[in-house]
């Protein structure tokens, strides 16, 4: 049980770090959103799953309410994170930020 928690914590830390580094490695808003959204969502899910494992191993009313809150936080993150990044990307495009070295831009052609 403990081993599983350490594995989840390590995976979460690695992928969250990847998201943070992706913010600096990529050239424009859209590619940064790619890296940041995917990696921090995945990493945070594993960090929270570690807390779920910890609460389940602990048991009792405290452990169970810990599991409930962690699972709810996971659901909220999974729902809100991609939606928020989608809103940001659309707003950036409508504000006139061009994608870096794009081969094709169908949204620009429609003219919205």
């Amino acid at each position: 049980m403990n081993i599983l928690m350490y594995v989840f914590l390590a995976v979460g830390a690695v992928f969250n770090g990847l998201g943070a580094v992706a913010l600096h490695r990529f050239p424009d808003v859209y590619t940064r959103l790619h890296g940041a959204t995917k990696c921090t969502t995945f990493g945070s899910i594993f960090s929270i799953l570690a807390v779920v494992v910890y609460g389940a191993a602990r048991g009792g009313s405290v452990g169970t309410s810990m599991v409930i809150r962690a699972v709810l936080a996971l659901v909220f993150l999974l729902l809100t994170n991609p939606t928020g990044s989608h809103a940001l990307a659309r707003a950036a495009h409508r504000a006139g930020i061009k994608p870096f070295r794009a081969v094709v831009d169908r949204l620009e052609e429609v003219g919205k």
Binding site: V21, R25, F26, T31, G35, P99, F100, R101, V103, V104
Partner: peptide, 11 residues
């Protein structure tokens, strides 16, 4: 892509 920096983006 973070390590190699190889991208070919488009919409």
């Amino acid at each position: 892509r973070v390590i190699t920096g190889r991208i070919n983006p488009g919409i």
